[in-house]
């Protein structure tokens, strides 16, 4: 008995047009939904800097340089020695202090309700002013 075997018609390759359609749709989807952010980083904990005295439990006399204190209020205002300063003015003050004492440390005491952006603004100003050591203070509340 001879069974007829189905023969694939020659020249009928898999159609590529639907594949291209799907890929183009996916491509446009990812192009539209992708967002691009230029991301940088600010060190928060770095064991390499532990040769510097920690802020917790340390006094100003223990430090190699003088300690400078900046408070960040809940509304984001920067307070330096009882006065509210703009970030630019604070940068000038810090730069002048660092010029006199290159080892000066900056202690930042932020209010708990202050935003992360306000804290980062202080770190940004300190970095631009050339402050090498910045410590964050946290009040342990109940």
């Amino acid at each position: 008995m001879r069974l007829a075997r189905g023969t694939a018609p020659r020249g009928s390759a898999i159609p590529l047009t639907p594949l291209v359609d799907v890929m183009l749709i996916l491509l446009v989807f990812f192009m539209v939904t992708s967002t691009y952010l230029n991301l940088d980083m600010i060190p928060m904990i770095d064991r390499a800097e532990e040769d510097m005295p920690p802020a917790r439990g340390a006094t100003a006399g223990d430090a190699a340089g003088a300690a400078m204190l900046v408070r960040v209020r809940a509304d984001g205002a920067l307070v330096w020695q009882g006065r509210v300063l703009t970030p630019e003015a604070l940068g000038e003050v810090l730069a002048a202090r660092v010029t006199e004492d290159p080892g000066a440390r900056l202690l930042v005491l932020p209010a708990g309700a202050a935003t992360t952006q306000a804290l980062v603004r202080v770190l940004d100003v300190a970095q631009a002013a050339g402050v090498r050591a910045v410590n964050l203070l946290r009040l342990d509340g109940p």
Binding site: P43, M44, I45
Partner: peptide
């Protein structure tokens, strides 16, 4: 360690 805070130089 190290612990880093992600920031961006330009507003999104």
């Amino acid at each position: 360690t190290p612990v880093v805070l992600v920031v961006t130089p330009t507003p999104p």
